[in-house]
């Protein structure tokens, strides 16, 4: 499975939602798509799902244009914050209807997830709470087992235990049935451990695409006594700082070489990986300035 996006752009009237976006997804892993509100995440994902067409550039999935391509569209599932306010069906029947259109759909797994999320089988879907409707989207996305599965802010309204079930099941099912999963999210610090690779979208453009671990090596959090920390980070690009009493933690952006790391340890400082959250805030802020 391969997704290739080349120089795509999309404008609505005067508003440019996407501009010259290029990236490639080649491996069966979990991609985190991050971006601030209005960055163009949903627009980009809706193009991958053939809900929409780009006004410029091209998208190919396994070498073919996915738009109106029956064999490709069948392999791409796009789950988003969808309203079920008019859906009178009960959940099992609804899932059975979907199963007809998804060749890899696993009904047993879907029923297992219905139980896991404690969704009521005898209640019409339209009477589900917001969180329960989101859980339904998660179930559809996971049980469809499509080679490309896209979750766009799919956790909205879900309580913490339900989100936890989602993350655990996602990792477990990805291990058993690897596929390309794209997770678009705002909950960066909560979900960062799920990502194998991160794509950062800002103002309709790709800011970076990088392996999660290599991205994490792009910065560090230096903690220790305020004076020593200040002295150590003086010439570095500081993106965040916290202080509690005499202890200070400064997040720096930029690779920290081994000799520098050793120097920090020698000075009694603690060197921790940067958080994706800090990096995300920093990188998108910097673009705004």
């Amino acid at each position: 499975m391969n997704i290739k996006v080349e120089n795509i752009g999309l404008s609505y009237g005067n508003h440019t939602a996407l501009e010259d976006v290029t990236f490639e997804l080649n491996e069966k892993k979990i991609y985190g798509l991050l971006g601030r509100n209005g960055a163009g995440k949903t627009t980009l994902l809706s193009i991958l799902a053939s809900f929409n067409q780009p006004s410029k550039g091209s998208v190919t999935i396994v070498g073919e244009d996915p738009f109106e391509n029956a064999s490709i569209m069948q392999q791409v599932a796009f789950l988003y914050d969808k309203s079920y306010k008019d859906e009178t069906s009960h959940i099992i029947n609804y899932l059975k209807d979907i199963q007809r259109y998804r060749p890899n759909f696993d009904m047993n797994y879907a029923e297992y997830l219905v139980g896991k999320f404690r969704l009521e089988k005898k209640k019409p879907i339209k009477h589900f709470s917001k969180g329960m409707q989101s859980a339904l989207n998660v179930i559809i996305g996971l049980a469809s087992r499509t080679p490309v599965t896209i979750f766009d802010e799919v956790y909205l309204g879900m309580d913490a235990p339900s989100r936890d079930i989602f993350y655990k099941e996602l990792l477990k099912d990805q291990q058993d049935h690897p596929r390309i999963i794209i997770l678009s999210t705002h909950l960066v610090s909560e979900m960062d451990y799920l990502f194998d690779e991160v794509i950062l979208l800002n103002k309709g453009r790709i800011l970076l695409q990088e392996e999660f671990h290599s991205l994490m090596s792009k910065g560090a959090a230096i903690t220790g006594s305020a004076e020593t920390v200040d002295d150590f980070v003086r010439s570095m690009n500081q993106i965040n700082e916290k202080q509690l009493g005499s202890t200070k933690s400064v997040t720096i952006y930029g690779e920290l070489h081994d000799d520098k790391k050793q120097a920090a340890v020698d000075k009694g400082l603690e060197v921790a990986p940067i958080s994706l959250h800090d990096l995300f805030v920093h990188l998108t802020e910097e673009e705004n300035e």
Binding site: S50, F51, M73, Q75, F78
Partner: peptide, 11 residues
């Protein structure tokens, strides 16, 4: 509903 389930507009 159908496009959301991977069915083409043509189908």
């Amino acid at each position: 509903y159908f496009v959301g389930n991977g069915v083409t507009r043509k189908d």
